[in-house]
Design a protein around this nucleic acid. Structure first.
Lengths: 202, 202
DNA sequence: GTCTATATTCCGATAGAC
DNA sequence: GTCTATCGGAATATAGAC
């Protein structure tokens, strides 16, 4: 029979449990509102362990945001296919991710970015370099128009996310994904490839 | 010559100074992030005075949100005029308010609602009862479609506000108001009066 | 009306025993 | 690897002197 002394088991899943709890906490209360102590309690570990693994709250947040979903993997299938369906495919993929467990990271980043400049920069850079740039590069429009087109798309998609997942305004909060795809897809399509001559004439 | 003893002057503007400082603080950091102590420091009064005037942080927030702008006064001129221009007029009025000093209250409510369920309810009720209901009542569409149309409008407008005033994604953050009116107006118009048969067929 | 002082609670981070 | 103990700070709110 093994001796009972020596190091406590040291569950190798502890680190992952902390990450999962952190993601959930940041999604519920945002970066500032979530506390390391609450994360530790949810993961059933000591608060000091969290520091031991991740060093600081900032680094814990970054670790919790990592990996759950990579636009580089999702976007190619969105960009393939007819140009006219791009808006709907983008909204469909967007909702698919946010409605899944991986969407927790999105809610966490969004909630944090609104009250914390550091995470706001993170969101901006994610949007611009990981999402918008990949999508806009495929379009056949005046390159000078791309930044505004991109931020219009972001406005509509982030607005949808805020209403559906954060503020929870009905009926958008509970609508079937395909309902929103049909409703919002054409908006995104127009921002991406529509004729915005009037806009740029101003 | 008046006696120098007796009560200290007691500036009658003190209360208003606290309210202005509170609105600015809530706009910058949200409800949870703003502290009564910071509000008091900005207003150059003692923190205990804030409690004396307003009783609690909740009531201070409510007082700071009051009055700066009333949709009941703004919307009639938006609703008057041709139906086809409704979307653009709505966006124009929206941006006019948010770009003005009164917009501070909007940013404060928005920033707070994202990290605080209590203020989120406040935002939902403001949107539904003060804004959307007034606008939707004027439309000539199937009443069963109104809730979804309304929350789609809210998604686009709040998304625009989040990107322009909170996350500050360029170029939307610095764009001329009329540029955004021309870009986003048609989206709002479609959500309000457009043919969404496909959406409701789902 | 105004301010000092404080009760109470919670935070992130660190040092060091085991 | 894990946990106890604690440092240093900041928060809301209240009691009560002047």
């Amino acid at each position: 029979m093994a001796r009972r002394t020596g190091r406590r088991p040291g569950n190798p899943d502890t680190r992952q449990a902390i990450l999962d709890a952190a993601r959930a906490a940041f999604a519920e209360r945002g970066f500032d509102g979530a506390s390391i102590r609450a994360v530790a309690a949810a993961a059933q570990v000591d608060p000091a362990l969290v520091h031991h693994y991740f060093g600081s709250k900032d680094r814990l947040f970054l670790a919790a945001m990592h990996a759950p979903v990579d636009p580089a993997e999702l976007l190619p299938s969105v960009l393939a296919g007819d140009r006219a369906g791009l808006g709907e495919r983008l909204v469909r993929t967007f909702l698919g991710v946010w409605d899944s467990p991986a969407g927790t990271a999105g809610v966490a980043l969004l909630r944090s970015a609104v009250s914390n400049e550091w995470t706001a920069r993170l969101l901006r850079e994610f949007l611009v370099t990981q999402v918008l740039r990949r999508v806009l590069d495929q379009l056949d429009v005046d390159p000078a128009e791309l930044p505004l087109r991109g931020s219009l798309v972001a406005s509509q998609m982030i607005g949808l996310a805020v209403m559906r997942y954060v503020v929870r305004l009905e009926p958008v909060a509970s609508a079937a994904p395909e309902t929103l795809v049909t409703a919002v897809g054409p908006t995104v399509q127009r921002y991406l490839t529509g004729d915005l001559a009037e806009v740029f004439a101003g």
